[in-house]
Nucleic acid binder design. Structure first.
Lengths: 166, 166, 166, 166
DNA sequence: TTTT
DNA sequence: TTTT
């Protein structure tokens, strides 16, 4: 019984390897930095390129897959929604963040480096409220991990707190 | 020859009447505050509503039409792209803004108040680099105007400067 | 692990009341006839209107909601995918059908007639492979029903056969 | 002043090289056969793949670029709208066609064979009502051509007749 | 910070 | 008919 549509469709390239975090409940939170470049002619007829860097969040199983298969440079399709967040820093200054929360991800073309073969698409299964007991997959070429899975108490278990971006 | 897709589709209701500004070159810049509400179940099975407020910018003729026909409460379809901006305030603090730059706008259903009849759809004609000489339409129930058209020198004529949001 | 994106977004008005059918397994199948009108200028500068009539299918719970709340004339947002089907008639002639299979539906504005208040949005829960035991809701102003629920053997229980369109 | 949204977003692979035709007025009409594959689990838990083959039409300059750069196997992003057409054959039998009329095209990843390097994106410039005098580019690995440019009288010059699909 |  |  929602009211409104909030839909984002992106095709871009990753500026970095995925960043993985895990909530206290063990849910994967993968953050991508995704570039989309557009071109327009200015008044003088010169071609102007402009790149937007999107901060894309993938949760749960979708985040685990992203962390496992995506790599810097890889081209990817993302479908999701826009979320605006506001945090008040230690210094009392409010900071604003805009995230794209992904519902679907699809790897495109052939990756830039490594990247494990071809494409594939995945939908978020809405498992953001579940507590996956299966530990995250470890592997040689693991994504940058910035928080140990399922043990830190830095993150409250409630979803609202899971996603502190700094 | 762009590289990437940056597409946003919104259906929501206006939280306020449109705000109109004009660049020194006379181009209309209409800003909408658009709410999209979504629902999700939290871990306890309770329904959680969350409303995102999107700042939507419409330029040129599309902005003029939006300013003329849209009203607070009206339901509207917007298609466009995400643009992230950063400004450094007088105090040296960086501020971040996220805009949805509209390519297409369509009024939906019957408006909340006034709203002038049925729907209608309009595409941005890419006239952002032109200098419309036709003055903006004036009318009784005009949108809030915060800058006089085509005379202020507060705004540089270049598009890059046209869109200072504060 | 799909490969490809097949996404349709429609905003249009219903040309008729929804048509409800039920598979032998009891799954609701709601069919909408949805008009979208576009305008273009022809070579002579004349404005040409063109209306496309989309055949939209909603399955399961999403179909039940559509059948219950939608009415002729109502404006609706549909998100889904395109499906092309081919059937060979009794006369051996092949017939082609194109359906929009809805994943999400949202009622827009105020309905044309009746229509039960405001809007609301619903997502297909992927229950197309389940067998809902709950009987479909009956009510005074019920949508046209063309097949009795959950008793006919005209339709095989497998999904592949559930959706014969004639 | 249109009423309604009719939007299609596809990411898929070409099943064949592009087919080029030209209207009597000299406008390029490029037809793509584009596959999108989706996966669902059936009732027995088996994975079912289903491929939809979309017939995508690109007109004018967008069609020329598609004809020049796309190749069988290539992955491509298409944005456009659905168009339903009906033709009555010589035998008096009505035939139905569904086309995706592209507004935007972007080549993804690296092509399958040849394909001339990386990606690139292009928007339809709405030049469907113009008469491009520039002859279509010829080259060694030209797309299949089924009609000579700008001389045949088989096709009426009006757009309505330009696009007979058989 | 990506990509072409 | 593509792709993985």
């Amino acid at each position: 019984m929602a009211r409104g549509i909030n839909k984002v469709i992106l095709v871009g390239n990753l500026g970095n390897d995925p960043e993985m975090k895990y909530t206290q409940g063990g849910m994967a939170v993968c953050t991508l930095s995704l570039a989309t470049t557009s071109v327009r002619k200015d008044r003088d007829g010169n071609t102007q390129e402009k790149t937007e860097w999107h901060r894309v969040k993938l949760f749960g199983k979708l985040g685990e897959i992203a962390g496992e298969y995506l790599k810097k440079g890889r081209q990817v399709y993302i479908e999701g929604s826009i979320r605006y967040d506001k945090f008040t820093g230690q210094d009392g200054v409010e900071k604003y963040f805009t995230d794209i929360v992904a519902d679907e991800m699809q790897m495109l073309g052939g990756g830039a480096e490594g990247g494990g073969g071809g494409g594939g698409s995945y939908r978020g299964g809405g498992d953001r409220s579940e507590r996956p007991s299966r530990p995250p997959q470890r592997q040689e070429s693991a994504p940058r991990r910035e928080a140990p899975p399922a043990k830190s108490s830095d993150f409250a278990d409630d979803f609202a707190d899971d996603d502190i971006p700094f």
